[in-house]
């Protein structure tokens, strides 16, 4: 499943790009995962309010 590296220059993102969708799955995870943390923090705040 891991493809050969075809780009000219090696780089962090280039290496992540070797499998199908690996790079975008990685970036999406980085963006979305912390939203869970925000969710639980806000939940706690709302519960303790009033």
């Amino acid at each position: 499943m891991i493809e050969t590296f075809t780009d000219i220059n090696y780089s962090f993102f280039g290496l992540l790009n070797q499998g199908p969708l690996t790079l975008s799955l990685f970036l999406h995870l980085l963006v979305v995962l912390p939203m869970f943390w925000i969710y639980f923090q806000e939940k706690k705040r709302l519960e303790s309010e009033n």
């Binding site: 780009d7 220059n9 780089s11 993102f13 790009n17 969708l21 790079l23 975008s24 970036l27």
Partner: peptide, 10 residues
């Protein structure tokens, strides 16, 4: 670089 293919597409 090529990695923009995937970032751009998705």
């Amino acid at each position: 670089p090529e990695y923009w293919w995937e970032i751009g597409a998705l």
